[in-house]
Structures are given as C-alpha cells and as structure tokens.
Design a protein around this nucleic acid. Structure first.
Lengths: 152, 152
DNA sequence: CTAGTTGCAAAATATTTGCGATATG
DNA sequence: CATATCGCAAATATTTTGCAACTAG
C-alpha cells in the first residue's frame, strides 16, 4: 500500500496518521478538525483531538492535505487530489460547491513570478447566497449586526 | 462629511465606529482586531476590544470593510476601496503584496451564475515563499512539524 | 424618551503545548 | 534502543456575549 508516503517524507507511519488521511480521502467533503476526530474515534477511540491537529499539520506540510477557511470561521481540511478546485460557499446556509478554474492557477503563477515568489498555495473562495437563502433573506432584512465572519 | 454612511444604513453614527473606519481607511494595510484596537485607543482610550469586533461586524455588513484570513491564522481587516484587489502572502515571513486580477472577478461571476448564487464576496489569496525566505528555508529543512496554518 | 450601542468581565470556540508514556524504525 | 509521536490535561488566542450604563436620534 501507499503507506510509505510517511517514510518517504521522513515521518513515521503511525496508526492515527494513516487513519486521518484515509478519512479525508474517503469523505471527499471538507471536514473540520472535530469532524475528523469523530470519524477517527469511530475506529480508534483513543486518538485525541490534539493528535488530529498535529497530524493534520504534518499532512499539510507534506502537501497531502489542504486547509480552507470556508465559513470564515474555523478551519476545514480536505485531501489534496489530482486536480485543483476551489469553493463557492453560501453565506446563508453554509452550503459548499466545488468548481474548477484553471485560469486562477495561471493568474497565481503570474503574480508569483512577478514578485519573485515560489508558488505554494492558491485559495480562491467565492461566497454568495444560494436561491433558498436569498428568499429567506428578503423577509427579515437588516435586523441587527448579523453574522460577520469577523467572529468566533 | 461622509459621516452619514451610518445613518443611511440605518445604523447609528457613533464615535467608535467613525474612528475605526477612519483608522482602516488611513492605514491602507491589513490590520487585525488588536491592531485596530491599539490605533483607536490612541485617540479614544476607553473603546473596548469588544466594541472593535462589534463595529467591524457592522462595517462589514455595510460593505465598507472586508475581512481576510491572510496568514491562515486570525482575521485581518481592510477598508473596501474602489477597485478590488487580492493578496499574495509569504508563508515564511508573512509579507503581503496586493495585486489586481479582473479575470478572477469574471470567474467568480460565472460560477455564481452557474449555481444560482448571488455573488457576495471573492477571496483570492495566493501564498508562496519570497526570495529571502526561500534562502533561509534551504538550510534548515524538515526539522519538525512546522507551521501549518492548521493552528492557533 | 426609547432603542441601539458601549464597556467590562466572563464565556465560548478553536487550536496549541508540556510532559510522561508509548511505539516506530 | 533512541526518539518521534501520542494522550491527556492545562494553556493560549481569538472572538462573542450578558448585562447594566450610556447616548444618539
């Protein structure tokens, strides 16, 4: 199996790490640390949340996992696959739609080159309101300081 | 003066709000909540950090301020100006370079339309390593679980 | 005068870290 | 067997909230 990814990266291949990576690969969605922890605990109850964070950090350093700030709130993690994609999120209900945008990659490369940077990561996330949320929104408009993303 | 932005938005024009907006407009950089608070305290020492957060939320709702997750860590705020721009950040030293990318706006619009979303916000941030940091990096490579952005 | 806004202190959330125990290479 | 990694609990950082006092309209 491709369990040697760790060895090759000079890291140890441990059960928690393998499990976490497996979880992220199977659930193609975007899980936050807590969600990953839940999935992992189902199979290995003694794995701690701290280990999940530490492992995610390692996996990210290895380039196998990406972290996104989807709802502008806390982090979401995702296995890095073959083709890069980005995220469209609904500011109302939090729904997430993935989309491809090769142009964005080109843009990023150009900008990096122009500034002497070595490209590491591209984060393109678009937010808006889905149909449902636009309707809901029309009724109760301008109630109070709503959700900002400034927060929590 | 354009102090009626608040009134027009159905919000009250208060000293803290005016000050915070002014701070963000003058310092064209990207300040985090604490930095904004510091600047504001210099002129009005009794303004609390809580108020800064609450005001930033209001300003963001009004579309006058944007929040970015630049270092992947905590939030940074910026006054929304005339033309939209994006950010290139160095994963090593945290340097931030702004750049324009009208294509990205087009891409975002298309994606929203294709999914029935009403476009609200575009976040394009590219990270990489600047020249200096690439050099620094070559020496001490692969020491341990470094900085992930998973964190703090 | 009334409701939106503030300050303060306490709470909530997300993530990190110290340390002794454990398991990998 | 040496040390990277883990689990646990405690620590940190960031952002939010309850509530009484204040103030803009």
């Amino acid at each position: 199996m491709a369990n040697d990814v760790f060895r090759l990266a000079g890291k140890r291949s441990t059960a928690p790490r393998r499990l976490i990576l497996e979880v992220l690969k199977s659930e193609s969605g975007h899980l936050d640390a807590e969600a990953v922890h839940d999935r992992v605990k189902a199979r290995s109850p003694r794995v701690s949340l701290a280990t999940v964070y530490r492992s995610l950090a390692v996996l990210k350093d290895m380039g196998l996992v990406a972290r996104h700030s989807l709802g502008e709130d806390h982090g979401h993690f995702e296995a890095v696959g073959d083709d890069p994609h980005f995220h469209l999120t609904c500011a109302g209900c939090g729904a997430v739609v993935e989309f491809r945008a090769p142009e964005a990659v080109g843009t990023a490369r150009k900008v990096c080159a122009a500034n002497g940077f070595a490209l590491a990561d591209i984060h393109l996330s678009v937010s808006g309101y889905c149909r449902q949320c636009r309707i809901r929104r029309r009724r109760k408009s301008g109630t109070a300081a709503s959700k900002t993303g400034a927060g929590r």
